[in-house]
Structure formats: C-alpha cells, structure tokens
C-alpha cells in the first residue's frame, strides 16, 4: 500500500492504536487521537479527519464535531509556536491590554494570525488558571506570569 499521501504518519497511527487497549470503545480515544495528530502535524486538517474516521470507527463529521468544539485543537494551520494570551477578567484588570499591544507591535500580528515566517501564531484564551499572577500568557507549554510589556521581546526571543 502506498502511504506517501497520508497526512497521519505511521508513528502517529501506532500511537493512536495504542490507546485502544485501555478503552471500551475506539470512539473514546477521539480527543486523544486528535491531540496525537496535532502533536505530529501541528494542526488537524480535513484530510487528517478523513483518515482518522476509519481508525476510530467514526464518521468524519462526528470527529469534526469534537475537533471544532475544543479551541486548542487547531483546524487551521498554526506557526511553530503558539502564543495564548489570557483576555479574561483578572488579566484584563491587571493590564492585559498593554501586553496585547506589546505582542502585537513586536510580531506585527493580531489574534488569529500567524507571522509570515511561520514562527508564531497568536491566540486569545479565556483563562490560564493563574489569576493571582495576572496578566499571564502561554507560549506552547511554557507559562509566563506577572507580565510587564517590556518582557515580551525577551520571552519571544527564546522561540525559534
């Protein structure tokens, strides 16, 4: 079988299938399978959903229902790093707007956009669970708290 056009790699497929051992139905692996696809591909494309459907024994639209429900499953391409800036009430009170402006000015992109060099995607997130250290943002899996606008360029410089 020619697998060269597949968007879900053999490794990703094996990782998904490994989930089935501890689950009552294959469908129960849906969310984790989407996370695995995203881990390998950065995002979940239409083609990936079509390939996932027979693996999970689900219909494409059913997987898409789950994928589109969660805001950190990406159904559009994202950059190599994803910045989540909290725009919820505590961060907003504590200076979110200045942080937002700092990121915007530094990268020249606003929410929902990706830098032309594919390095960063900038997204809002409703809460990072760290209100006592607001304002906060998350880059990939790194959390930054008690932010000042002048820290932004230094933080983002760490990510290539």
């Amino acid at each position: 079988m020619d697998n060269s056009n597949q968007v879900i790699s053999e490794d990703a497929r094996k990782e998904i299938e490994a989930l089935f051992h501890h689950l009552p139905h294959k469908q129960a692996a849906c969310i984790d399978a989407l996370k695995i696809v995203q881990k390998y591909n950065r995002w979940v494309s239409d083609e990936a959903l079509v390939e996932l459907a027979p693996i999970l024994e689900m219909k494409t639209h059913e997987i898409d229902s789950v994928a589109t429900f969660y805001n950190i499953i990406f159904r559009k391409p994202v950059g190599r790093h994803v910045i989540f800036l909290c725009n919820s009430v505590s961060c907003w009170v504590m200076g979110y707007e200045a942080i937002h402006k700092a990121v915007k000015d530094h990268l020249n992109i606003d929410f929902g956009m990706t830098t032309p060099d594919d390095r960063f995607t900038f997204l809002p997130i409703p809460c990072l669970g760290t209100c006592d250290h607001a304002p906060a943002l998350l880059v990939d899996e790194d959390l930054y708290r008690d932010l000042k606008p002048e820290q932004i360029s230094e933080i983002l410089a760490k990510y290539e």
Binding site: D46, H61, D64, T68, F69, Y70, N71
Partner: peptide
C-alpha cells in the same frame, strides 16, 4: 442519517455537513 452534524461551540455552533 450519517452525513450531517454539528460543529464548534458556543456562539459559533454550526449545523451542516463536514464538507
């Protein structure tokens, strides 16, 4: 039916086909 569903959440909920 098997070719119709609901997508996304909250204010963006969408009813239609996956394509």
């Amino acid at each position: 039916g098997g070719d119709f569903g609901v997508f996304a959440s909250s204010g963006r909920v969408y009813f239609g086909r996956s394509e």
